[in-house]
């Protein structure tokens, strides 16, 4: 609804992280207005180490301390291996 405040975020996992956690995309409801990328990572993951993970908000690389806003797309991905 127009004017209604959203509290949803989209979480995207890529490559080995998607394979290890068993999913690619999820819509999550955020309760906390100061939620960081790190807190989303802790929410979705209980087994993978956070070493060498690249994170992005709305397809721009950021860090684990960044604050997430409603409707953001947050992604977790391993180091790049293209080329």
């Amino acid at each position: 609804m127009k004017g209604e405040k959203s509290n949803k975020i989209k979480v995207v996992l890529l490559s080995s992280i998607a394979q290890d956690l068993g999913w690619n995309e999820k819509i999550l409801t955020i309760e906390d207005s100061e939620m960081t990328v790190f807190s989303v990572w802790n929410l979705i993951n209980s087994k993978l180490p956070q070493d060498n993970i690249i994170v992005s908000i709305n397809q721009e690389i950021t860090d684990m301390k960044a604050i997430i806003n409603p409707d953001d797309e947050v992604a977790f991905m391993p180091m790049f291996t293209g080329g």
Partner: peptide, 14 residues
Amino acid sequence: ILEFTKYKVPLWKK
């Protein structure tokens, strides 16, 4: 450009 595609672009190989 080649090194950029290896280290700075979201691409992964399996």
